[in-house]
Amino acid sequence: MEQKRKTHPFLFHGDAKEYFRIWIVNTLLTLLTCGIFSAWAKVRKRRYLRGNTELMGHRFDYRADPRRILVGNLVVALLFVAYMVVGQVYPVVRLGALAVGLLLLPWVVVRSLAFNAHNTCYRGMRFYFHQTYGMAALTYLGQLLVVIITCGFYYPAWVRNQREFTIGNHRLGDAFFRFSSKSGPFYSSYLVSGAMIFGALILGGMLTGVMLAVTKHKVATFTELVPFFIVYGSVFYLAKHYLFARLFNQVWNHTRLDGHRFVARMDAGRWIQLQLGNLGAIIASCGLLYPWAVVRSSSYALSCLQFEPDRPIETIGRLGKDEGSAFSETAGEFIGMDFGL
């Protein structure tokens, strides 16, 4: 029987009003500078979220150099514009560009994870991501093939393996992250959300079908498709956040930092309720309440997470150093880990 260990909560000190002021000023500056300021804006926003996350009396820090992100942004913007212009005229080029992009994906993922980790600090210690392109290609492309071959059946296991790859290659000083979870819980989570979406498709289809039968139309008009889109969209949103809550718990509860553990107890119902409120507020305010939603989400998510060290964390020491490049930081932003790390 393991003895009861002391747990330390993650605390979030962010204030919605304060973050709104930061967000609106930075967004406006981004717009007025035609996007050039976006790199500085991103660093400031991210630093606000990390800097307000407290663990055991200390805050996290984000130290990325905006100028490097700016370079990455410019490269991505150039590629995107070229892709749009050329692709509009020669659709074949578009396919080719997508193929090249797909092949570059593992590299982008690894570089952005490394950049993100390198610039995140706790108590003066930088996080570090071990860059293994071969493993990344195997995880992201090789297993994608398996997903395609199995008609998507392998997808939940693929997601699990991605987490294993990203988490397992992180370390803080000389303490290594490990991720050890079976695929089963991933399958059950995806099964439930899949069933929700499937049910929404049927329900929405029936609603539109009834309307078609009443109006005796053969082709559905836009207004007749509205109930379908509403049902489908809202259930899709619910399923997405149900999945997030389930995976949040599953991932953190099976993540170790050497012997130290994490305890996540996110309540899926409360999380969904919170996100529905966010969605309503964002739509009603035309996106202006987005920062409020971010603070609310971060605050709740972090309040569900606790750290459970198995010995004093002061024993964690330094081990080498490394650098990251800004290019991949931007390109791979959507893959970044948003909470805690």
């Binding site: 973050y19 606000y48 800097g51 307000n52 200390h58 820090d61 108590r123 003066g124 330094r318």
Partner: peptide, 20 residues
């Protein structure tokens, strides 16, 4: 570190030393 809301200030000293 640049001032940013109520986020505590970090002083970055040489040799990776910091003060929060």
């Amino acid at each position: 570190s640049d001032r940013l809301g109520a986020v505590p200030c970090f002083l970055y000293l040489p040799d990776r030393q910091i003060v929060e």
